[in-house]
Amino acid sequence: MTPLISVDHFSKSYEEVRAVRDLTFEVNRGELFGLIGPDGAGKTTTMRTLVTLLRPDTGSVTVDGMDVRTRMKDIRAITGYMPQRFSLYPDLSVEQNIRFFADLFAVPREELPARMDRLYRFSRLEAFSRRLAGRLSGGMKQKLALSCTLIHDPVLLVLDEPTTGVDPVSRNEFWEILHELRAQGVTIVVSTPYMDEAMKCDRIVIMHDGASLAQGSPRDLVASMTVPMYALDDRDLVMNFSRIETVPGVRSVQSFGDSLHITSDGDILPERLQSAIGGALGRDVHLRPISPSLEDVFIALIEEGGVHVL
């Protein structure tokens, strides 16, 4: 089957800023695909282009075989887009908001009850159907915004940082909903600054300065990081590790929660690295070999630019 989305050498600039540079990726039908990158990486520009709100300067972007330059109306009919600041009407109820978006997308009246039932089932918002949107918690607002985005039964869902500012429990719930939608065949493109969410995608592209640094399944990306990595569990050092950074054989040091993650040059033996760091600190330390996480890969890609990712 052909991919649902095909982005081919796509570039886009705003005046002097090159927002996206020569970006190429594909999204298969039914895939949960993540755009991962720091602020300003070009994620939002890419998403807006996918939903035909922006036109590529060069290169081509197609959705279901349709060019975003020429088939705006057709693409919008099959696409649901949730921007970072999705506008709900705070003085309308949950149900009134959904009905409003149903009218905007010209959902036939006779189909509406069945669709609302379905949206309520996964969002668990039915008990709150009369509550004003302005009085919902952050997590519930996001679920309502998602429901409004889904009212016209899109085959493609484009979500720009849907869980920013949402607490960990509500974030988990939101991602369970995304997995349910994918199981029903919806293709989802989502951007996120959270690496634990990136791990929940089928495939991701890591973007930086408008370009793709790496693509693949999160697990493959993690496996491709071959530099030896160690953890040093010491809370006192977590934010105060400049003495370690300059130790010969140390390539990089990053704080991770209450420990440090240290990558070595690769050639140095773990015991030697351990005693060199201990020497620099003036006491014994214990380095624990660890497998890198996606966050390690992300940092290595962006800060060092030199990780051997396939």
């Binding site: 720091p38 940082e161 500012g165 600054p193 977590v238 704080s255």
Partner: peptide, 20 residues
């Protein structure tokens, strides 16, 4: 109050070094 909302891991780490 949620000073690092929506920020990537690298910027968040830099921010926390300043907090320290």
């Amino acid at each position: 109050d949620e000073p690092t909302g929506g920020v990537d891991p690298i910027s968040r780490r830099n921010f926390w070094r300043i907090i320290y």
